[in-house]
């Protein structure tokens, strides 16, 4: 046993610090975002699985023709946006639960940035496919 003892800097109770500040504001928004995107993903991912049955083993020409159809592009973009939105919201809960202290904020930002970029990459791939462009590489 050493000489050091615990030391509390703020001489107010947690309740005293919270009192008068009002609610945390965001309320149940995060919870709802998670459930709403989850429910939306049920039909969207079903559509995606069905499409994978159409595309299993397909070559580039077949995939390009498939992706160029406006209906497919719309559904595909919806799948991508909803998937990465749901991933962002869900991963944030995991980070909030398991990452503490100094690492918390950077990890949370990293989750936001990476999921956003992946979603954007998917959306731009869809745009390129639907525009029929292929660099020939």
């Amino acid at each position: 046993m050493n000489t050091s003892t615990p030391h509390i800097e703020v001489m107010r109770s947690q309740l005293g610090r919270a009192r008068g500040l009002g609610a945390g504001q965001s309320g149940t928004a995060h919870w709802w975002a998670e459930r709403a995107s989850a429910a939306s993903l049920l039909p969207l991912s079903t559509w995606f699985v069905v499409q994978m049955f159409r595309l299993g083993g397909a070559d580039h020409a077949e995939v390009a023709r498939w992706g160029a159809k406006p209906c497919n592009a719309t559904m595909l973009a919806a799948v991508i946006i909803t998937t990465f939105y749901h991933a962002q919201v869900g991963l944030q809960v995991i980070v909030d639960d398991y990452v503490h202290g100094k690492a918390h904020l950077p990890t949370r930002l990293a989750v936001k940035i990476i999921t956003s970029l992946l979603g954007l990459l998917g959306v731009f791939a869809v745009i390129k496919l639907v525009a029929g462009g292929s660099s020939g590489k």
Partner: peptide, 18 residues
């Protein structure tokens, strides 16, 4: 999520070309 990331790369490859 990791799989979805791979899926996006697959789609990106399809958009890039044969």
């Amino acid at each position: 999520t990791g799989g979805a990331a791979l899926g996006v790369f697959w789609l990106g490859a399809a958009a890039k070309g044969p």
